[in-house]
Every structure is written in structure tokens, then in C-alpha cells.
Simulated scan of single mutants.
Amino acid sequence: MAQERTGVATLKGNPITLIGPELKVGDKAPDFKVNKNLTEQVSLADYAGKIKLISVVPSLDTGVCDAQTRRFNEEAAKLGDNVVVLTISVDLPFAQSRWCGAAGIDKVITLSDYKDRNFGTSYGVLINEIQLLMRSIFVIDANDTIQYVEYLGEMTEHPNYENAVAAVQKLV
């Protein structure tokens, strides 16, 4: 049974339970399996040798998630070819594709944890009560070691974009 973490996060002020471990800087990044589309899965190994900025959002169809993904799409253009920016949510791949097309997202890779919430439980961001992912940011170096983590305490708040980008820039 996966670890449950209480008292660490809220949704509009209401306490929520996160499933999975609290990862820290210096930890080896856990492997994960998420969907690129309905039939194709990818894992951490698919991005081997790259610096990875993983932006985790509950759903692209909400205001903060939309803004977060657009911001990281802009930043991705400036970070260089050795950096990959992944946005992971439990939105279906169809919805992610539709949203990216409408929003003009062309640098961020959207991945879906809809199938078995493998990323959510591996990275400690699955919200037990609603089965969505808690907003968070992970920066993982080319050797798959976590170099930056931000678990937001309140789901409706924005992450610290500047600190996440600075963590990536230190590795480039």
C-alpha cells in the first residue's frame, strides 16, 4: 500500500491527502509510465541524458494550469536542446492534444497519467480524494537525480516559475 501524506496540502483551503512519497533534492528520480497518446506509453528512460523540468497540473482546462503550461512553454524556448519540459496531468491524451492545439503549445510535451496514476503515486502527488495530481514542479538532471522540488501547499496557487527555471539554468 502506498504511503498517505496528510496535512501537507489543501484544495481551496480544504485538507487533501497525497498518495506516495515526498521526494527531496538529491533523491534518484523514480521511474514512471505515462501515456503520450492512448496507446503509447513513455517512461523516465525515454528522456535519458536530458535535463527534465516536470510541471505537474491537476487539469489543463483550469485557469492556473493553463497559465502554468503557457509560461513553461515560453521558458522552454529559451532553455536549449538539452532540456525537455514535460507537463503531466490526468487529462485524457485527446483533451491534452485539443488544449495544446488551441493554446499554441509547441515546446512542452504533455503526458497523461490517466491510466493507472503511476506518476502520481511514484512522485507523491496523487490526490486521494479526487484522483487528480497536485500541482508541483520537479527538475531532474541528466543523470536522473532530483535537483529541485516544489510541492504546492494550496492547489489553486501558482508555482515559483523563477526558481524552477533558475534550477534548470544551473544545470544547462
Rank of each mutant, 00 (worst) to 15 (best):
E22N: 04
E22Y: 01
L23A: 02
K24I: 10
K24N: 10
V25Q: 10
G26Q: 08
K28R: 11
K28H: 06
K28N: 09
A29V: 12
P30H: 11
P30L: 12
K33G: 10
K33N: 13
N35C: 03
N35F: 13
N35K: 15
K36E: 06
K36M: 05
N37A: 00
L38E: 06
T39K: 01
Q41F: 01
Q41S: 09
V42L: 07
V42Q: 02
V42G: 02
S43C: 02
A45E: 10
D46M: 07
D46R: 06
D46H: 10
A48L: 02
K50G: 03
I51C: 01
I54L: 07
S55K: 01
V57F: 03
S59C: 02
S59L: 01
L60E: 04
T62V: 11
T62D: 13
G63P: 11
V64H: 08
C65M: 12
D66E: 12
A67T: 15
A67E: 14
R70F: 02
R70Q: 10
F72G: 00
N73Q: 02
E74F: 01
E75Y: 09
A76N: 01
A76W: 05
A76C: 06
A77I: 13
K78L: 14
K78D: 12
K78G: 04
L79N: 11
G80P: 03
N82S: 13
N82C: 00
V83W: 01
V84N: 03
V84G: 04
V84Q: 11
V85S: 04
L86D: 05
T87I: 03
T87W: 00
I88C: 08
I88V: 15
S89R: 07
S89E: 03
S89D: 01
V90S: 02
D91Q: 04
D91A: 03
D91L: 04
L92K: 05
P93G: 00
F94H: 08
A95Q: 08
R98W: 10
R98I: 15
W99S: 11
W99P: 09
C100F: 13
C100H: 11
C100Y: 12
G101H: 11
G101A: 13
A102T: 15
A103N: 08
A103T: 04
G104P: 06
G104H: 09
I105Y: 04
D106H: 12
K107A: 09
K107Y: 08
I109M: 13
T110A: 09
L111R: 11
S112I: 07
S112V: 07
D113W: 02
D113I: 09
K115S: 04
K115P: 00
K115G: 00
N118H: 14
F119A: 09
G120P: 10
G120H: 12
T121S: 13
G124K: 07
G124W: 06
V125W: 06
V125C: 12
V125Q: 08
V125H: 08
N128A: 14
E129N: 03
E129K: 04
I130Q: 06
I130K: 07
Q131T: 14
L132A: 09
M134L: 11
R135A: 04
R135T: 12
S136T: 08
